[in-house]
């Protein structure tokens, strides 16, 4: 039975320092399975660092991170991806040596069950699995509205489309938890609206948990079911968007009083 109410991600008292900078300071997050949730906070609050910790890019100096009740602290990013967490980057990091299609296929085929030896020998099994992956790629490209761009090089895509491609690539590794780092950054208002629709649609259609970072309050308020607010590395508030918006600590952080 699927436990809708279960907690998929535990971040327990996690701290991260870079030299003298405390980027994340004793932060706690309990994210329920199936949520579409957000982390907000001013620039430099430690949001991206939080994603880097969850996805294994950094190992916290203190605290523990658990995914599906399994400790992932200290695991490498690729191990964590195979466990079911995938992410995008605040400053887009697409593979420029691969076209749009292969960017997504690369992520999708990471789970393909064929070995190095089977691949170079070109066994029939390899081509069969490659064909299966190909149809998945089309599905994810379609999901973000990138059908028809298969042969384009990512650096030649408009900025908004690059953001969508990163989402498609992240989805192709079949995550149970998707982390989106400022997916709306650099988009115009129409594109933001469209992106919000896509994120809502993905959330419903794929039935996954989504945690996104945004510092645009309006976007977060309208699509997130739950929010964490970070400031100076600490989580200063947590709750549904309405209550968070009225939290005095949050008002102080945002208005800088």
């Amino acid at each position: 039975m699927k436990n809708e109410q279960g907690t998929i991600l535990h971040v327990d008292n996690v701290t991260m320092r870079f030299g003298g900078v405390v980027a994340v300071n004793g932060a706690n997050i309990r994210l329920r399975r199936g949520r579409l949730a957000g982390i907000i906070g001013p620039n430099g609050a430690g949001k991206t660092t939080m994603f880097n910790l969850i996805s294994g890019v950094y190992t916290p100096v203190e605290g523990e991170i658990r995914f599906k009740d399994q400790a992932i602290t200290g695991k490498s990013p690729d191990e964590i991806t195979h466990l079911g967490i995938s992410r995008t980057f605040q400053n887009i990091r697409l593979f420029e040596g691969l076209n749009v299609y292969d960017n997504v296929k690369m992520a999708a085929s990471c789970r393909s069950e064929y070995s190095f030896l089977e691949a170079i020998l070109g066994l029939p099994k390899v081509w069969k699995l490659e064909r299966e992956v190909a149809s998945e790629v089309e599905y994810y490209l379609d999901l973000v509205g990138l059908s028809g761009y298969e042969k384009v090089w990512p650096e030649n895509l408009a900025y908004g489309l690059q953001r969508k491609l990163e989402i498609a690539r992240a989805l192709a590794s079949k995550p149970e938890l998707l982390l989106l780092d400022e997916p709306a950054a650099g988009l115009n208002p129409t594109e933001v609206q469209e992106l919000m629709e896509i994120i809502r649609h993905i959330h419903k259609e794929l039935d996954i948990t989504i945690l996104l970072i945004e510092h645009h309050m309006d976007m977060v308020m309208s699509i997130c079911e739950e929010l964490w607010v970070m400031n100076f590395g600490a989580v200063i508030a947590n709750g549904d968007p309405e209550s968070v918006q009225q939290d005095p600590e949050v008002l102080k952080a945002y208005l800088g009083s």
């Binding site: 996805s55 294994g56 890019v57 490498s76 990013p77 690729d78 991806t81 195979h82 995938s86 992410r87 980057f89 990091r93 697409l94 593979f95 420029e96 040596g97 691969l98 292969d102 296929k105 690369m106 992520a107 085929s109 990471c110 789970r111 690539r169 992240a170 590794s173």
Partner: peptide, 17 residues
Amino acid sequence: RNSLAIRNDELAAQVMG
């Protein structure tokens, strides 16, 4: 694909599995 991804961006390649 994995080789090209690594050549292009090692960290992103690792994050993609």
